[in-house]
């Protein structure tokens, strides 16, 4: 594959993408992971991300958009640095998932898919995240937090805030 000139990604990610495009029997298989890793780095799937990934995988941009819009974790708008995803699906709901979500809305002062003015947190109500037996559960970016209560949630949020002041 021809190397991409002026990649928008960091050298590490660009190198990873160069490799990803080679490991599958069909290059296109790298699309979903690439989009996810690009989002991890850029914060969201920007138009520039779409353009570069389309180029890397010899796809039409429309194709990339059709795929990316299918997956819930991929977003085309920036989110907060810490994206708080509260599960309210059945197992979590039974153990206070909705109360937890409401608590987050309240303490963060934002609603579903909104971001705090300082850009630190965004909030999302999500479907089951595979932590039903440790419900209610939430994910902050990729970190799982189980068996939550509003008080525990506050502590979780504080721990992320604390990372920033360090």
């Amino acid at each position: 594959m021809a190397a991409i000139q002026n990649t928008i990604f960091t050298p590490g990610t660009a190198a990873r993408f160069d490799k990803l495009a080679t490991i599958y029997p069909l290059k296109r298989s790298a699309l979903v992971p690439m989009l996810l890793y690009a989002q991890d780095e850029v914060g969201y799937v920007s138009d520039a991300v779409v353009a570069e990934i389309a180029q890397r995988l010899d796809l039409l941009e429309l194709d990339v958009r059709s795929v990316l819009s299918y997956y819930s974790m991929l977003r085309t708008q920036p989110a907060g640095k810490y994206n708080v995803q509260v599960c309210t699906n059945i197992s979590c709901m039974l153990r206070g998932g909705f109360e937890l979500l409401d608590h987050c809305k309240h303490t963060l002062g934002i609603g579903h898919k909104e971001t705090t003015p300082d850009g630190l947190f965004s909030l999302e109500e999500v479907e089951c995240i595979g932590a039903c037996c440790w419900a209610p559960a939430a994910q902050v970016n990729y970190d799982f937090h189980d068996d939550l209560t509003p008080a525990k949630m506050d502590a979780v949020l504080d721990s992320y805030r604390a990372r920033e002041t360090k």
Binding site: L60, L62, D63, R65, S66, S69, Y70
Partner: peptide, 9 residues
């Protein structure tokens, strides 16, 4: 041509 796609779900 592939000018049309399906988006969202």
């Amino acid at each position: 041509i592939f000018a049309l796609g399906v988006q969202n779900r």
